[in-house]
Amino acid sequence: MSARRHPSEERLLAFAAGTLSAPEAVVVATHLALRPRTRTWTHLAQAVGGSVLDDLEPTPLDNGAFASVLDRLEAAVPDEAREAVRAPAADHALPAPLRGFDLSPWRWAGPGVHVRDVLGPRDGDCRVILLRIAPGQSAPRHTHAGVELTCVIEGAYATDDGVFEPGDFEEADPSVLHQPRVVSRAPCLCVAALDGQIVLPGRLGKLLAPFVRL
């Protein structure tokens, strides 16, 4: 059976409901930007959110809430003016969901492997990185301390489950030893949400552990 290459329906529902952690949401949003067809599910989930909202019992607001909001409307800055003061997008050509974030410099993370941090989305130990792996290279064999979500942005890699191409989304199974190998001619660029440190098994892991910070 071939692996699925899009987020599960329950993960897409959580994305639409706003209950995914920020790092996970960034990776899912990148997938949605590259694979508009998956948006069918998030549209559906948002529509269900609307129907859930319609069906809720109302909780009265405080006395004077409407008047207080009306007062603040006077001061509400029109949308266009707000757009203008927003900081310019970071200087990189990544899919739209990643453009609002600053990036750390690239750092070496093993032969042919570079990583940089997507600064901002964090949830405890969970964070977002970009991984760039050279053609023909493998990422270091690793197991996962936590959930790892990956979305390919450029290039392609292969695992035992087949080839993953731009837009493909992979949810790593913590029990599986994972060693993606780049099969594209150009380097493979991925965005990933990592929870905790990746564990590199074996001697290479022991050798690299003091130096490699993913």
């Binding site: 952690s21 920020a22 948002q46 959110g49 319609d54 739209a96 901002g120 989305p121």
Partner: peptide, 29 residues
Amino acid sequence: ASAAAWIFTIARNLRSDALRRGSSALHAF
């Protein structure tokens, strides 16, 4: 989107902004 879905999304975004930083940059998308 239905108006309800749109308002739901607005409320959801405010809620996640209040709960954690780092998510607001996503909402524009």
